[in-house]
Structure formats: C-alpha cells, structure tokens
Amino acid sequence: MDNAMYVVLSRQMTLRRELDVVANNLANADTTGFKVEALQVRTDTQAPARMADGPKTLKFVLDDEVVRDFTQGSMQQTGGTFDLGIDGRGFFKIQTADGERYTRDGRFTLSPEGKLTTQDGDPVMGDGGEIVLDPAQGPVNIAPDGSISQGPQRVGKVAVVDFSDLSVLRKDGDNLFRNVSNLQPTTATAAQVRQGMLEGSNVNSILQVTRLIEISRSYESMAKSIDNTSDLSRRAVERLGRVA
C-alpha cells in the first residue's frame, strides 16, 4: 500500500508543477508576444514490487519538460513609431550582455545615443549590426521587409530570423529566448514587420481557467486517494494487532 501512495504522490507533484505553468500563462495573458506553455509528463516504470496478490509493475508519473506553442498572437494597433510586430514566423534579434537572444516582443524605443533598443536597453540588431538613427533626419518609416528609412534615405534594416526547429529555444527571462543548440538562425524571408503594431499573447484565458479547474480537482482527488490508502493501512495494522 505504501507503493500505491508513492505512485499517487508522484502524480500529485506533477499536478502542482502544472498548476504553476497554467497560473503563469494566465498571469501573462496580456504580455506582448508571450507564448503559452504546457507541461509534458511521462511515466517511469520501476521494477516489480511485491504485493499481496503477487508482483506488480509500478509506474511513477514525472514531469518531462515545459513546451511552448509558438502560434502567432493577434496584432494590436498602437501607432507607436518603434512598436513593431512580426506577421508570420520569426524573431527579432537582441544583443544582451549574456549574448544573442530572440524575442517576439517588439516594444522598442530609441536610446539617448539614437540606438534602437528594448525596454531594458539591449540593442536591437539589424543586418549590419546595431541600428543607430538620427532623429534630426526626419520621421522613421519601417517597411514590411524591415528596411528603415528617414525621408528618401535608407538607414538600416531590422533583422528578423527564424529557426527550422523551434525546440532549440529556451525561455531566458524578460520575454527573451536563447538558442541552446548549435543550430544557426536563418533570415525569416516570409515574415513581415508591422510598424505601429504589437503582437498580443496567444494565451486563451478561457481554456487556461478551465485547465486550472481540472488540475485543482485532480489534485483533490489524489489527496483523497492518499488519505484512503493511509486509512486502509492504519485499519490493517489495528486488525493485525487485535489478532495477535
């Protein structure tokens, strides 16, 4: 019976982890460019255990990894000069102190030095390196291919890259992703940059709330199973004591 409790407890632990993931999704339902996450679980088969009615194989439940759905969120009009949304598959390339990172969050701004940066001050990379603009040269226009112009002069191009396998990207905080493999990004030729727009989160709040309720009920069910098993063990010990 102790083995049964351990199996149920393993499932209860993964439910707590999944609860954290779903709660994080709901907390980021309004975060620009956020991608909904889900917990993958797997069973770990252990050696047969000796039970009253013979040996039985135990299957414990373990959390495997958190996966992300990179489906595009809805585009939202802002009118901001440096608000950029990616229509299609791709990522902006950001240079941070820890190396190159990637994001769908296009809430960019202009630093005092004229560099196009993220809200945290990290440079947004162009095809030729950092993007530096001179406000005195006139209004900034960004074409769907990422080309930046001021008046008749082309002054740069926002780099939009893609990966053939999105599973190589891991969340790195501040709505950034890092490449954990040797796979090199390529130019996202099919993606289009939308100036004055931002991509919303792809979290479906109704589905996430429904999942939250399902997890809570499953967790309560597992807790009752543990209580019932514990009670059964206690009564078995009491009966053995009376027989003795």
Rank of each mutant, 00 (worst) to 15 (best):
E113W: 02
R42I: 03
G151C: 09
Q195W: 08
E199C: 02
P152H: 06
K93N: 08
P123I: 09
F177K: 02
N24W: 06
G241N: 14
V161C: 00
I94F: 05
L15Q: 07
Y6R: 04
A38K: 10
F108H: 06
R170G: 05
S230L: 08
Q72F: 03
T78G: 08
R101G: 01
N228F: 13
P55Q: 06
Q137H: 05
T14I: 14
L39A: 11
R42V: 09
L62I: 06
P185Y: 02
T45Q: 06
E37N: 07
A23I: 05
Q12H: 01
A136T: 15
P152C: 10
A27G: 05
V36G: 01
S233K: 06
S216G: 09
G241T: 12
V193H: 01
F92W: 04
Q40V: 13
V193P: 00
L133N: 06
S111R: 10
G54A: 07
M51G: 11
Q119P: 01
N3Q: 12
E18G: 08
G80V: 02
D63Y: 11
K59E: 15
D165M: 05
Y6G: 02
T32L: 02
N25C: 11
K157T: 09
Q119F: 07
L39Q: 14
Q119N: 01
E100Y: 14
T57Y: 08
L19D: 05
R11M: 07
L84C: 07
S201Y: 00
D64P: 10
V21K: 03
V158Q: 00
L39T: 11
T31L: 04
G79K: 14
M13S: 07
G73N: 12
N25S: 04
G129I: 11
G173S: 02
